[in-house]
């Protein structure tokens, strides 16, 4: 059987434990994220795990790719500790401020440079942006098919696989020819934990940092200026509501409440 080269796209996200430290800069309308530690998102670990299992069962290798500012290396190092063979960080000022389309464009340029790739894995959505858009868009730039919300993969031949696409209250089973981009759900596997050998393995590996000069890209499609979407404004959310207090005996309160909820059309009429 053919050995497979899997690429896993991972994204540095602000560590969830520090989200309440993120504030909004009222002048620039951007989020103040400086000093917030980055972490590997939980679904990125599922994506990496799936690629590692395929490598273990079929042979081949796993390359992790990320786009981010300097400092992102640490999440790539972690992916190597867990078992990835190679890591690429796409980092350049010109990439900054990218929306999903401009991000996907840069990731795809890095993956193209890697040469023959059979499978590209991603987490179905990142922890912070949660758009789930990058996978299908990377696939478009690579000219591959894409699958998202995948909870199961079976390699059924050298150039094809079967997968389960989770939809609301059900699933669609598909067969797809490789190469293909696959965005995974957390049900797909249980990610491994790092072990002592990982650290030894990682010492022999290095992280490749690629800038704009290392990949073939059209400058007009990069970063903030190459992003078709923009943030027109950001507001903090007002949590206040009308706060109408209901009083009386329990049975009386229950009657009042049900009546009001019917008027608001959130409960059916009798």
């Amino acid at each position: 059987m053919k050995e497979l080269h899997s690429v896993v796209c991972i994204k540095p996200v602000p560590d969830q434990r520090f989200w309440d430290k993120i504030s909004l800069d009222p002048k620039t309308q951007t989020l103040r994220r400086a000093g917030i530690p980055v972490a590997l998102g939980p679904l990125d670990l599922n994506a990496l795990e799936e690629a590692l299992r395929i490598k273990e069962s079929r042979g081949g290798k796993v390359t992790v790719v990320s786009m981010g500012p300097p400092g992102t290396e640490e999440i790539l190092e972690w992916a190597i500790v867990l078992g990835a063979d190679e890591a690429v960080l796409l980092s350049d000022r010109a990439f900054a401020g990218a929306d999903t389309l401009a991000t996907a464009y840069v990731l795809a340029s890095g993956i193209k440079k890697l040469g023959d790739v059979d499978l590209v894995f991603l987490g179905n959505e990142s922890l912070d942006g949660s758009t789930g858009q990058v996978g299908p868009q990377v696939a478009e730039f690579l000219g591959m098919s894409h699958l998202t919300h995948i909870t199961k993969i079976d390699l059924t031949g050298d150039n094809k696989l079967e997968a389960k696409f989770r939809i609301e209250f059900g699933s669609i089973d598909v067969e797809v020819k490789t190469p293909v981009v696959i965005a995974v759900d957390k049900e797909i596997n249980e990610p491994r934990l790092a072990n002592i050998w990982g650290a030894v393995w990682a010492q022999e590996r290095k992280i490749n940092c690629w800038s704009i000069n290392d990949v073939e890209v059209d400058r007009d499609k990069l970063g903030l200026s190459g992003s078709p979407t923009q943030v027109a404004g950001v507001t903090t959310i007002e949590l206040k509501r009308k706060g109408e207090m209901l009083t009386g005996e329990p049975a009386d309160i229950a009657r009042q409440l049900v009546k009001k909820l019917q008027t608001d059309k959130v409960l059916p009429e009798a």
Partner: peptide
């Protein structure tokens, strides 16, 4: 699953 692929195909922006 569909919208981002279509947005990339026609090269436009997509708010998620």
């Amino acid at each position: 699953d569909l919208a981002p692929r279509v947005a990339a195909k026609v090269n436009t922006g997509l708010s998620a």
